[in-house]
Simulated assay, not measured.
Amino acid sequence: MSKVAFLFPGQGSQHAGMGKELYEHHTKAKSLIDEADNILDYPLSGLMFNGPEEHLKKTENAQPALLTTSIAALELLKEKGVTPDYTAGHSLGEYSALVSSGVLSFKNALTVVRQRGLFMEEAVPSGVGAMSAIMGIEREELETLTSKVEEDGEIVQLANLNAPGQIVISGADSAVKKVEELAREKGAKRVISLEVSGPFHSKLMQPAQDKLESVLEPVPFSDAEVPVIANVNAQEATDASVIKNQLVEQVTSPVYWEDTIRRLLALDVTTFVEVGPGNVLSGLVRRVQRRGVNVYSAQDIESIEKIVENIQ
C-alpha cells in the first residue's frame, strides 16, 4: 500500500512574503503566526511578510520563520484531512517534522530554533568557515578529497548529501577552497560557493552543539506519533530520548538527505509533500527518484487545495 511522507524545508528556502497568504485567509495560520510573534517577543511576521531579505536570511531569523511558515501550512493540511505516514525535515526542517509528529510542541520548537540559530551564528567568526556545493562528483570520491585535505590538519567534511552528484561540503574557509580546486580537477560539473553565515554541519559547529545540548536538556519530548526519519542516520525514530540525542548530534553531523528519500521509498512511500516555503526538497526527491512517485509542494492555499484533490 502506498504511503505519504511530509518533508519540511531547511534554511535557504526562506523568502519575503512567506506565509502571508495563509495568514490573511486561514484562521489557524493567523493564530499560529501571531503566537510566534508573542513567543519570540518580536515581530517575526513582519520579517516573514515584508523582509528585508538581508535580515530574513540571518540564521536566527530564518530558522524560526521557516518553522512557523511550515507549521502554518501543516495546520491547513491537517484541517483538510491530509496526514503523513512518515515525516522528515532537512536540517532545521527536522524541528518542523518533530512538531508534525507530536514530539515537540510548536512553542518549544520555536524557542529552541531561535536559540539554535543564534548559537550557529556565534559558533565561528565571520569569514573563518565556508560551505560549497559540489555537483557531478559522487560521495565516495568527494570523501576521499576531503580526507586528503584534512590530513593537513584542516577541517572540511561532507555536510549535506542532498542527491546523487549534489553534495555540500563545509569547514574552514581555506580547506573548503582546497577541496573546491581538487573537485574541479576531478571533473566536477559545477562548484558553487554558498552565501552562508557559518560552516554548518561541520565539526566547527561543536560550540553550538554544546550550547544546544544544554538548552534541549530540560525541554519535554514525547514519543513520535508518526515516525521521523532522522538526518543523522536516515532511519526512522519514535523514541523521545533517542530523538533528542539525534537533534544534538545533528549540529555537527552530515544531513543524509538522499539516504532519507531512499529509506522512505523502501518504506513504500510514493507521495511526497513538501510542507512550507519553496520547492527545494521537491526537486531533490525527483533527482533521487524520477518515476513512480508523486511530489507536491504545500506552501499556499492553491497548492494545498491541489494536494487535497489529488490525494483524497
Results as ranks from 00 to 15, higher is better:
Met1Leu: 04
Val4Ile: 15
Phe6Ala: 09
Pro9Thr: 03
Pro9Cys: 04
Met18Asp: 03
Lys20Tyr: 06
Tyr23Met: 08
Tyr23Pro: 14
His26Asn: 15
Lys28Ile: 01
Tyr42Lys: 07
Lys58Cys: 05
Leu66Gln: 05
Leu67His: 06
Ser70Gln: 13
Ala73Ile: 05
Leu77Ile: 01
Lys80His: 11
Gly89Val: 11
Leu92Gly: 11
Glu94Ile: 08
Leu98Ser: 08
Gly102Thr: 10
Ser105Gln: 14
Ser105Trp: 07
Glu122Asn: 15
Val124Ala: 13
Ser132Ala: 13
Gly136Ile: 11
Glu138Pro: 02
Glu141Asn: 12
Leu142Ile: 02
Lys148His: 12
Glu151Asp: 11
Gly153Leu: 12
Val156Tyr: 05
Val156Asn: 08
Gln166Arg: 06
Val176Pro: 04
Val176Tyr: 01
Lys177Ser: 13
Val179Ile: 06
Ala183Phe: 01
Gly187Thr: 07
Lys189Cys: 00
Ile192Glu: 07
Ser193Phe: 11
Ser202Leu: 09
Gln206Ser: 10
Glu213Asn: 12
Val215His: 03
Glu217Lys: 14
Val228Tyr: 01
Ala230Cys: 02
Ala230Thr: 12
Asn233Phe: 10
Asn233Tyr: 05
Ala234Val: 13
Glu236Phe: 07
Thr238Asn: 05
Thr238Val: 14
Gln246Met: 14
Glu249Ala: 15
Tyr256Pro: 01
Glu258Asn: 13
Gly278Asp: 09
Arg290Lys: 15
Ser297His: 04
Ala298Cys: 11
Lys306Gln: 09
Ile307Thr: 13
Glu309Ala: 13
Glu309Leu: 10
Gln312Pro: 00
